[in-house]
């Protein structure tokens, strides 16, 4: 192509050309670093008994950050992220118990495996032009298939699930420590920070910007020379890999995984709810959502276990958490349609 459209005027740039992208990414990394430092010291100021809530919150955070890449930035609403969480959880358990493979390596293998599964599922859905609720339903169906598979596969001990053997001593390689070790908190914290760093890098990169263009208008994006399937699948792969890592850590922390913990529908909603509450398609929304949902789910569990006198009828009720999420989601969708963070950011910009 010749120097066709270079205009003589074109060489003179408007003086105030903003460089917001780079500054933008750098600023996000700084927020992340500051947040990481603050959260690092959290266990020192909170009572020991709060560690399980913190860990659960971090796991929600990783799941939601992963889900948000595909569904928030990519516009492909997944209602089946349990599939990728579960593949990560089971890969860890199977590789460790059968072959003695370190959870760190299993985590990576699981992530690659999940990415492959996700790409395959997404490719099939997109190939047959499923979009919106049809796409969501298809992903849900795939996750249910994994649930059935796990319940019936001898390799993964069917409905009984897999226990991770307890080691006699601390081991970094095997990711086991004394019961209240802060390491159980710091490790998922670092994993979450890495997931957020990946999100920032992606969102401000060329592939990430293409992905957002495709979300906004696939027809226009394609007509500008963007191979939309390729970039959608890249996004899906990243999303599934991150959610898988949450699953692998889950197995290590609870030293157990079964079909329900890995693949049931509520696992998919656990990835969705924090992102929706905090703000879909934003970097910080899923984290803020997780910070709400994590403690809340613990509170609900505590109330059901041991209700105060005036709530005695709740004793042992199951599904209360789901009901509360539902109410919370309705309130958010009505009053803060872009989520807590998304709505605040929008107000600040005006």
């Amino acid at each position: 192509m010749s120097a066709t459209t270079e205009s003589p005027r074109g060489t003179k740039l408007p003086s105030a050309l903003p460089q917001r992208t780079h500054d933008g990414a750098r600023r996000q990394y700084i927020y992340l670093a500051v947040g990481l430092v603050v959260l690092f010291f959290l266990p020192f100021v909170l009572p020991e008994s709060s560690q399980p809530v913190l860990v659960r919150t971090l796991i929600y955070g990783i799941m939601a950050v992963g889900w948000n890449l595909m569904s928030g930035y990519g516009g492909m609403f997944s209602f089946g992220h349990a599939a990728f969480f579960g593949v990560g959880a089971y890969t860890d358990a199977v590789l460790l118990t059968n072959f003695g493979i370190s959870p760190w390596i299993a985590m990576i293998i699981g992530a690659v495996f999940s990415a492959g599964v996700g790409v395959l599922i997404a490719y099939l859905c997109l190939r047959y032009k499923l979009a919106g609720s049809y796409f969501a339903l298809a992903t849900f169906a795939f996750a249910q298939m994994f649930l059935l598979l796990a319940q019936n596969l001898e390799l993964v001990n069917r409905t009984e699930g897999i226990n991770i053997p307890l080691l006699p001593e601390d081991s970094w390689a095997m990711l086991q420590f004394g019961q209240d070790s802060f390491n159980y908190y710091w490790i998922p914290l670092l994993l979450l920070a890495a997931a957020v760093a990946v999100t920032i890098a992606f969102v401000y990169s060329r592939p990430g910007r293409y992905t957002q263009a495709i979300r906004d208008d696939p027809v226009a994006a394609e007509s500008l020379g963007i191979p939309i399937m390729k970039y959608r699948l890249i996004t899906v792969a990243l999303s599934c890999a991150i959610t898988s890592i949450a699953g692998s850590y889950y197995t290590q922390y609870y030293l157990f995984v079964g079909p329900e913990q890995a693949f049931s529908m509520h696992v998919s909603t656990d990835a969705i709810v924090p992102a929706v509450i905090g703000g879909v398609g934003t970097i910080w929304g899923p984290l803020i959502g997780a910070a709400v949902v994590g403690p809340l789910s613990e509170l609900v569990a505590a109330v059901v276990r041991n209700p105060p006198p005036f709530l005695e009828f709740l004793q042992g009720v199951s599904g209360l958490d789901v009901a509360i999420y539902a109410v919370l989601l309705i309130v958010i969708v009505v009053f803060l349609p872009k989520g807590i963070y998304g709505t605040i950011r929008e107000r600040l910009r005006k």
Partner: peptide, 12 residues
């Protein structure tokens, strides 16, 4: 390269 009669901006 073509343009669209019904405009298709990336709205975000």
């Amino acid at each position: 390269v073509r343009t669209f009669q019904l405009m298709r901006p990336f709205e975000s």
